[in-house]
Amino acid sequence: MSEVLNHKQVGQKLTRMAFEIYERNLNSSGVVFAGITGMGMILAKLLAEELRRISPIHVEELEVVLDKSDVAKSEIELSENVDLTNKNIILVDDVLNTGKTLVYAMKPFLDLEIQKMEIAVLVNRSHGLFPLRPDYTGFELSTTFNEHIRVDVSGPQHSVQLH
């Protein structure tokens, strides 16, 4: 196991991502961070906090609840029933592997009249099996399918490790 990003580096990546989100959403009425269950939701909260710190943009958060171990058979729903009409949604997850989880996580938004949807991930492994690319990426990391990335931002010492 080797550390890819330490606590300070993860913080720097999140700050840079928040500035990019601010720049691309200057004229929006607000941004909704939709974090995927687990580390995705924790990252969504961290990005929301950082965006609130650096900008006047109205920020909301909600969770995309799903079972990552069997996303194809999972019930996929939003944690809150909020009006997302004409809002900018940023779907957040920790690691983009094949894209399957993110594709399924978009499902609850398909019937809504949102303004736009973007994707933010802390680590992009570039194993795209689905035709999607993140709009905001903290770190690009080429790995084999046998290697595993572990993101831990749940405690006071954030880290990204390669196994």
Rank of each mutant, 00 (worst) to 15 (best):
I89V: 12
V82S: 07
I57W: 00
I119S: 01
S2R: 15
G30N: 04
G155V: 12
E23V: 01
S159V: 09
L102I: 15
E80C: 08
L26D: 01
G11T: 05
N124T: 06
L43R: 13
F130R: 00
L84D: 01
Y104Q: 06
G35V: 00
K13Q: 12
V10M: 09
K8W: 10
V10R: 09
S55W: 04
I54R: 07
E50N: 14
V59Q: 05
N124S: 07
V10G: 05
I114Y: 11
N124Y: 07
L62N: 08
V71F: 06
L46G: 03
Y136G: 01
R16T: 11
M41A: 06
R125G: 01
M39H: 11
L26S: 01
L132Y: 04
D135M: 05
N25H: 08
I119Q: 04
M17V: 02
M41G: 06
E147I: 10
R125I: 01
D94N: 07
S79E: 14
L112E: 15
F130T: 04
N124H: 08
L91E: 11
Y136E: 00
I36W: 02
V153F: 04
G99L: 06
E50H: 12
Q9L: 06
S79I: 06
R125F: 08
Q9A: 10
N27A: 05
E75Y: 09
G40S: 09
T101L: 08
F33L: 02
T15P: 00
I149V: 15
N146V: 11
V10D: 05
S28P: 04
V82P: 01
T98A: 12
L96T: 08
A105N: 07
G11C: 04
N86D: 15
E20N: 11
I57A: 03
H163R: 09
K73R: 15
K8V: 11
A18M: 09
L112N: 09
V121W: 06
V153Y: 09
E80W: 10
K73W: 02
N146L: 14
F145Y: 12
D83P: 10
L47Y: 05
D93C: 07
I42Y: 12
K73N: 13
I90E: 03
G30H: 03
G155W: 08
F109E: 07
L5W: 00
D93K: 05
P134S: 12
L47R: 11
R24S: 01
D111L: 13
L47D: 05
